[in-house]
Computed example of a mutant assay.
Amino acid sequence: MSDDATNPDDERGSEVDDYTGEVPRIEVPDDASALLGDGPTGFGDGDVADIDDDAAVEEGSAEAVEADSAELLAEVDRLRQLAMRQQADFENFRKRATNQQNLEVERATGKLANALLPVLDAAEAAYVQHPDEIGPLLNQLIGELKKVGLEPLDLADQPFDPELAEAVAHQPGNGGETIVAEVLRSGYTWQGKTLRPAMVRTTD
């Protein structure tokens, strides 16, 4: 056998104490918790404290994230409410602007129609003298004005209404209901409102 071969007895012999000649004994502690000492591989009190600190930090971070999320959601809700109010204000402004524009157009058209009343009066007076020549022109003029809201009042033989007519003459009758006997000057309404009351002669 070669001299280089390793003898198991020699290996065990290497564990013998050189001074006492005895093999050292390894004692296992009765309490297994003793293994959890402060050594390099154990978990001591310091390590447990570190774990508790880490858990506290994680819990605090979670609470901070939750608080930040709640604050962010509140801000989003506030901005949404603000946007809704701005939208409502814009819609109200648009409606007011549209209504104002319509009123301005209505006033301008009403002023134009009112300015044309003397022209209508002259055309009616000319119609009495020359019905065949003036009739078509007068009808066309009134027809165009009707398209924008002008309506002549038809009051002949109708009960007298002081809101629509002004009685400048009266012819006594049988004492019954007062009616319009003759229209002396035509009256007109504009957009459903009295633009100019008619001048009439009444009878009863």
Rank of each mutant, 00 (worst) to 15 (best):
V180E: 01
L153Y: 00
A74S: 12
D53C: 03
V23C: 03
V200S: 00
L103I: 04
A62V: 05
A70Q: 11
R185P: 03
E133P: 00
I51V: 14
Q158A: 12
E63K: 08
R25H: 01
A115Q: 08
A165S: 15
V65N: 11
R185C: 01
G135P: 08
P197T: 04
P136E: 07
D50P: 05
H130K: 13
Y188R: 01
E133V: 12
R80W: 05
E166P: 01
P197V: 08
E124S: 07
L103P: 04
R94V: 07
F93L: 03
R12F: 14
Q100E: 13
E91T: 10
D30L: 11
R185D: 10
T20D: 03
L184R: 01
T98K: 11
E177Y: 05
Q81F: 08
Q191Y: 02
P8W: 06
G44N: 02
D30A: 10
P159R: 03
R94G: 04
L145R: 08
E106F: 07
D31G: 06
F160K: 09
A83L: 14
M199I: 06
E63M: 05
A181L: 15
D18S: 15
K111E: 15
D52F: 13
T6F: 09
S186F: 00
Q101M: 11
D121T: 11
E71W: 02
T20A: 05
G37E: 06
L184F: 02
D154T: 05
E182T: 13
D204P: 04
E75G: 06
P118T: 10
A88E: 13
Y19S: 11
A56Q: 04
D154R: 01
E22L: 10
P24F: 00
L112N: 06
A115M: 00
N7M: 06
A56C: 00
A113L: 13
E177T: 15
T41K: 13
A70M: 05
H170D: 07
V180K: 00
Y127G: 01
A67C: 02
